[in-house]
Design a protein around this nucleic acid. Structure first.
Lengths: 140, 140
DNA sequence: CTACATCCTCTAGCGACTAGAGGTGCAAGA
DNA sequence: TCTTGCACCTCTAGTCGCTAGAGGATGTAG
């Protein structure tokens, strides 16, 4: 069996080397066996687990949510209701965030368009920031 | 002249009390004068400044960007090109973030819809997370 | 005078890493 | 065999923008 170094594991999974160590330190990844010289030696399963974590992080799941998803993955006979709930909750969060960012975008556009590119005392950017009452939407 | 306590300043500006002290500590707000008993005494101008900061934070501007915007506001004869650039940069960020969240939303919807609500070994949520290749978009 | 709210400073913690110091392991070329 | 040089090791501290808590002082109303 070939030894997979942390660098190789990082390359294959797309997770950075210090981050791999960090995941191990918080117990998201089991501590791998070590070489004679105390260097980590990973299994192919560890690479999959790291890729899983990375993908979930890219989708914005929090570490604790990922921890739950991983324990579910480890026991395939469980009901997937929790996984479903976690994904749904994340979806709601994302939708909410999109709505709020759209409002923000509109606000910023008004600011930028209104700016006459002159001096600060005529600048709409500064003006709008100073006076929330000028906002199109009262709630950001 | 009436003294404005930190609690009053917080209430009027919508910034929390510890956050007001934090802004002072990082030099975003000038240290106000103190009462005989060493309590902060704010001026109306401080309230405006706090409201400005709060509004900018709501719009997602970083502290350092706000610091620049505030120095611009302090000197109204300067060109507002910097303010303009900061707002534009923020707009680009927001647009990028929206695009990325939309892709994410699509991904999560596929995951959630595909889940048969059965056991983990048939769960599409877990499956998709484990295998990035199943994603509709290769880049999140 | 006595409650009690509000204020003060200081330190530590959050999440999810990232950076750096200071040292060791290992493989390949001269 | 030696040496170069990269990859690895552990540990601590820093990032951002606050937030929480300890432990004590001040201010105000009854």
């Amino acid at each position: 069996m070939k030894k997979i170094t942390i660098g190789e594991a990082a390359r294959q999974s797309g997770v950075k080397v210090p981050t791999v160590r960090y995941y191990e330190s918080i117990g998201l990844l089991a501590a791998p066996s070590r070489s004679e010289g105390n260097q980590r030696s990973f299994e192919p399963a560890d690479i999959s687990r790291l890729a899983f974590i990375r993908h979930a992080r890219e989708l914005g799941f929090e570490i604790e949510a990922i921890r739950t998803l991983l324990t579910l993955q480890d026991d395939p006979h469980q009901s997937c209701a929790s996984a479903d709930a976690i994904a749904k909750a994340r979806l709601v969060e994302v939708e909410q965030r999109i709505r709020s960012l759209m409002a923000l975008k509109a606000e910023l556009e008004t600011m930028v368009e209104g700016c006459g590119h002159g001096r600060v005392d005529q600048c709409r950017v500064i003006e709008v920031l100073a006076d929330h009452g000028q906002c199109t939407h009262s709630r950001h």
